[in-house]
Nucleic acid binder design. Structure first.
Lengths: 182, 182
DNA sequence: GGGGTCATGTAAACAGTTACATGATTTT
DNA sequence: AAAATCATGTAACTGTTTACATGACCCC
């Protein structure tokens, strides 16, 4: 196998919960990890092929369909632990909102206000989805993984509330910029 | 020119402040926008070549060196405004810390604690750099762009403080997970 | 049998980093 | 004169998305 990839980590991790088809893997990643992770089919299928070839996952034929269901092998579980222990790879920052705001003088306060309003709306929507995620995690009280799920939910909530607070503050500044008379 | 690229937006925006060489462009992006943006030479030079060919930037020979200094043309400034008005492109989420934490049961509370401690340390370092950025922006009191610079600094501060608060909360949960006797 | 969903996979295009090759200019 | 920094550019590689081609299965 080539270099350990982020996609392979996510695929192995998702398969550690239960064996799945590639299609179900995508659905699970979107619905369970969607707030902080994403994978496309174009990544998942080649990754599964590589992992299969490396003996880290194996195919178990499901009775009710001809679709290949993938399961972690013991070597795969070991490899998953090794990948989880590797340092987090930091993505280079690319924040289009802050880039536009930094050069806000070019666009003017009105257009900047629209940008911030949009960011606030998205943060509010995120909070709604996180509240759902929290409720559905709380249903599984007693599940050994539950505290870990709630940590990721809480991270999203803290970030979204920080965005809301910043947006309020910034809208205030923009109002005074547009109308210095106040 | 091809599709409007993020790199071209950043390059045009940076050149709107003052004409620069490609090298100085990189330095400016790292030092001024480094908290929320990044570009590599491998992106900057081809972008400059495309922008030159499209008549959006022109080369002004500097007297003290043979290096090509790039300046926005009027068409370039128009194009910059158009690009700034385009919707922010959202990067698909890829948070390695939260991915590891979600599957925290595989690694155990001790390794997760290390991950969170590391995140807290990085947030603290970020706050230090942001305090410097705030001070250096406050030196330019009265500059028309200053309020916009401070908005981006404030965004970073809110985010970093949210990370700190989440880290404290999460370290607490992890302590109780590792030692349920308390 | 028609429409929806489940399912696998590939090809093309795009975005981006890293490493390298090269040389001019400035500083010590 | 050597070393550091400024400067430009390319090539190879990696990762990723999107669109497409294909078809099985299920229910109405």
């Amino acid at each position: 196998m080539g270099k350990p990839s982020q996609t392979e980590l996510a695929v192995l991790a998702a398969l550690s919960v239960e064996p799945m088809t590639g299609y179900a893997l995508r659905e699970a990643i979107v619905s369970e990890l969607g707030m902080f992770w994403s994978e496309s089919f174009g990544q998942i299928y080649p990754a599964l092929a590589r992992l299969r070839e490396a003996g880290l996952v194996e195919v178990v034929e499901s009775s009710r369909s001809r679709s290949p269901v993938h399961r972690l092998t013991p070597a795969g579980r070991e490899h998953l632990v090794a990948l989880l222990r590797e340092p987090v790879v930091a993505a280079p920052p690319r924040n289009g909102l802050l880039l536009r705001l930094f050069f806000g003088g070019v666009l003017g306060p009105a257009a900047c206000t629209d940008l911030v309003l949009d960011a606030r709306r998205r943060a509010e929507e995120t909070l709604v989805r996180l509240a759902e995620a929290r409720r559905s995690a709380e249903v599984d009280a007693g599940h050994p993984q539950q505290p870990y799920w709630l940590m990721t939910v809480s991270a999203g909530e803290h970030a979204a509330r920080a965005t809301l607070a910043w947006a309020e503050e910034t809208l205030d500044v923009l109002t005074r910029l547009a109308d210095p008379g106040v």
